[in-house]
Simulated scan of single mutants.
Amino acid sequence: MLLITIPLILFLFPLAYSLGPGNMFFAANGARFGFRSTLKANFGYHLATFVVTYLLGIGFGFGTSHAPTLMLALRYLGVLYVAYLAFGMMRAGLANDESQAKHASFIDGIVLLVLNPKAYIIIALMFSQFQPNSTGPQFFIGIGWISIIFTLNNMIAFCFWAAIGDKIAIHFRSKKKAQILNIALGSMLLLVAVWMAVP
């Protein structure tokens, strides 16, 4: 396991920590609601990540990669969902109504992963490079180990970006500045939706 772990982490590190839809989403939520409020969504996202990664690893990826209609549907459902969250955040800023601003939930985290086809592509890319060569039980153990490393690496990256967002928010404590922050972060999430829409 150790022989595959180090190269796998080196492979995943730039993918996990560079700016992407997931990192931007959690940075925005960390800035708006604080680091602790992102933990439920983070757990939901990465519980789904582990399940999806494991399924892709044992062969689900073949069917998904050969189902362009499914991937297209997932892409645009994901775009609509993130855009919905973005408009909710911006509306809270415009209306000055804190009741409209809701932090991402455990379910939001799951939905964000399931409706993010780019996550499937990254997972399929990972397994194209690190598919276990063993057979029988060792194959499933190997897939499980890779899925755990991938999931934990992503979770730490998301926590990192959520913490950065939380620190940024310290400078936006007044009501007027908070409105500006809501609109800016909602716009950021809209950019995430656009990012997800691009093939």
Rank of each mutant, 00 (worst) to 15 (best):
L2M: 08
L2E: 04
T5E: 02
P7L: 03
P7A: 10
I9W: 01
F11Y: 15
L12A: 09
L15H: 06
L15V: 12
S18I: 07
P21E: 07
P21I: 08
F25S: 11
N29Q: 13
A31R: 09
A31P: 10
F33A: 07
G34V: 08
G34D: 08
N42H: 03
Y45K: 04
H46G: 06
A48E: 07
T49I: 06
V52Q: 02
V52K: 03
Y54D: 04
G57L: 11
P68Y: 13
L74N: 08
V82R: 06
A83Q: 05
A83E: 12
Y84D: 09
L85V: 03
F87D: 02
M90I: 13
G93T: 07
A95H: 07
N96V: 04
D97F: 10
S99Y: 00
Q100L: 15
A104P: 03
A104E: 02
S105E: 04
G109Y: 01
L113Q: 14
Y120I: 11
I122L: 15
M126F: 06
S128Y: 07
F130Y: 10
Q131A: 11
Q131C: 03
P132D: 05
T135D: 08
P137S: 14
F140A: 10
G144F: 05
G144H: 11
W145H: 06
I148E: 04
T151K: 02
C159S: 14
A162E: 05
I164T: 09
G165Y: 09
G165H: 11
D166A: 15
I168L: 15
G186E: 05
M188R: 00
L191N: 01
A193N: 11
A197K: 07
V198P: 00
